[in-house]
C-alpha cells in the first residue's frame, strides 16, 4: 500500500520536475569510497554519481551511513577523531582527497546543512546569515550587506518572518525558523553544492513543506543532495534517489524508477515497509 502510495507521489512529481538523468552533467562522483570510524566500517565501496542542478535524495535506515557520506563529500568526516577514509571523490573531475586540495576552500563550495539547527548563539539573525561571507572574507564587516541578507533570507523563505528583527538573537527563533536560517546562511556563501542532512527531521509539517518548496525553487541554481528518512519527501522533491543499506549503495537512479520499479528486492522491501 505504502509503496503504491509513494509511486503515486512520484508520478505527479515527475510531471513537475522530471528531467531525465541522462541529459545532465555529473558534478560529483565517488569512486570505491569507504569510510570508517574507530575500525568500524561505515561506508563500503560506494560508487555514486551526482548530476549538476539536480536534487538527489539519499534514503536508507538509521545508521546506514547516509550522514557519513555527506560528511565525506565536503571533507568533514576527517574532522572526527578516529576516522579514516579511502577511495576518491571527484568534484568537477578533480579528486577532492588529492593532496593539493585545501579542504577549507572545498567546504566553501560545498555547503552542509545539519540535522539539528545550529545557528551561532553569539550572533544576531543578520550576522548569522553573513557569517559564512565573513569567515571566507568575501566581505568584511563594513561592507553594505543589507541586500545580501535580504536575498539569502528571501531564498530561504524566512525574510517576511524576521525582517523586523534582524538584530535579535538567532536563538529567539523557533526550530523551523532556525533551520531555515541555517539554510540561508549556507546559501549566502553561494556554494555550488548544497548538502542537507535530514533538514526536516525536527520540524513540523508546515515548516517541512516550506523547506521542500524552498529546495525545489533552488534546484535550478544549486546541486542539492538531501539525506532523508521521509520516503514521501524523497518522492516529492528529488530527481534521483540513492538507497543505502548498512554502508553499501544498493542502487541509485531516477526517483521515478527507484520508487516504481526498483531493481533490487532490498530497495523494494525498504520502500514498502517490509523491512526488518
Amino acid at each position: 500500500m505504502q509503496f503504491q502510495f509513494l509511486s503515486a507521489i512520484v508520478s505527479t512529481n515527475n510531471e513537475t520536475i522530471g528531467n531525465p538523468m541522462s541529459d545532465r552533467q555529473v558534478i560529483l562522483r565517488t569512486e570505491s569510497l569507504s569510510a570508517s570510524f574507530e575500525n568500524k566500517k561505515i561506508l563500503n565501496d560506494i560508487n555514486l554519481e551526482i548530476s549538476k542542478r539536480n536534487i538527489m535524495a539519499i534514503i536508507g535506515p538509521s545508521g546506514c551511513g547516509k550522514s557519513t557520506l555527506l560528511r565525506c563529500i565536503n571533507r568533514m568526516h576527517e574532522l572526527i577523531y578516529g576516522s579514516t577514509l579511502s577511495g576518491r571523490i571527484y568534484f568537477e573531475n578533480k579528486n577532492i582527497y588529492d593532496k593539493s586540495v585545501d579542504p577549507i576552500l572545498l567546504r566553501r563550495r560545498i555547503g552542509l546543512v545539519f540535522q539539528k539547527p545550529n545557528p551561532f548563539p553569539s550572533m544576531s539573525i543578520k550576522d548569522n546569515v553573513l557569517s559564512g561571507l565573513w569567515l571566507t572574507q568575501k566581505i568584511n564587516k563594513k561592507t553594505d550587506s543589507d541586500h545580501l541578507v535580504e536575498n539569502a533570507l528571501q531564498q530561504a523563505v524566512l525574510w517576511d518572518e524576521v525582517k523586523d528583527r534582524l538584530d535579535d538573537s538567532s536563538l529567539s527563533l523557533s526550530g523551523g525558523q532556525q533551520q531555515r536560517l541555517c539554510i540561508a546562511r549556507a546559501l549566502a556563501s553561494k556554494p555550488d553544492v548544497l548538502l542537507l542532512d535530514e533538514p526536516c527531521s525536527s520540524l513540523d509539517p508546515i515548516a517541512t513543506q516550506r523547506i521542500e518548496s524552498l529546495l525545489l525553487s533552488l534546484k535550478n541554481t544549486y546541486t542539492i543532495v538531501i539525506v532523508t528518512h521521509n520516503m514521501r519527501q524523497a518522492a516529492r522533491i528529488s530527481n534521483t534517489t540513492a538507497f543505502l543499506l548498512s554502508g553499501r549503495l544498493i542502487e541509485y537512479g531516477e526517483t521515478t524508477h527507484i520508487f516504481t520499479s526498483p531493481q533490487e528486492t532490498q530497495t523494494e522491501d525498504y520502500l514498502s515497509g517490509h523491512f526488518d
Binding site: 565536503n74 574532522l79 577549507i104 567546504r107 566553501r108 551561532f120 559564512g132 569567515l135
Partner: peptide
C-alpha cells in the same frame, strides 16, 4: 561543525 561547513 556548522562553522567548518562554511569553510572556516
Amino acid at each position: 561543525d556548522g562553522c567548518y561547513a562554511l569553510g572556516a
